[in-house]
Design a binder for these strands. Structure first.
Length: 109
DNA sequence: AACCTAATCACTA
DNA sequence: TAGTGATTAGGTT
């Protein structure tokens, strides 16, 4: 049988991967989706938004696949997004006008 | 190049 | 059961 990578809720996998992302690197919803074998990029965001209930999930390391920050804390392009940009810059990620150097910081599994 | 639409999957109430 | 949602890709203008 095909080992269905569905051991736990998708959220659990996403959280695990998020914590697996090294500091100074970012990942995209698509990347996570492919890593988990799912094509619902939206479900990934929902998993982060519905985090287990603890800010222990660096959801700020997950961005859109086009380099945009996507969203943060459940808001798209809001004020929280500014914090996200700040956090990434602090981690060492160079951001260019609300865009991240994906080819340089995109995290590869 | 930029913008818009449609399709997709998972989770919650 | 039905609806929403941190998206993505492609086509058109």
């Amino acid at each position: 049988m095909k080992t269905n990578p569905k051991m736990s809720s998708l959220a659990e996998q996403v959280h695990s991967l998020c914590q697996n992302i090294p500091k100074g690197k970012v990942t995209t919803y698509k990347n996570i989706g492919e890593a988990l074998g799912v094509r619902s990029y939206r479900a990934i965001g929902q998993a982060l938004r519905r985090s287990p209930g603890m800010p222990f999930v660096p959801c700020h390391r997950v961005i859109c696949s086009n380099g945009s920050l996507g969203g943060f804390k459940g808001k798209l392009g809001g004020k929280e997004i500014g914090e996200k940009r700040r956090l990434l810059e602090k981690e060492g990620v160079r951001i260019n006008e609300s865009k991240v150097d994906l080819p340089k910081y995109k995290w590869r599994f």
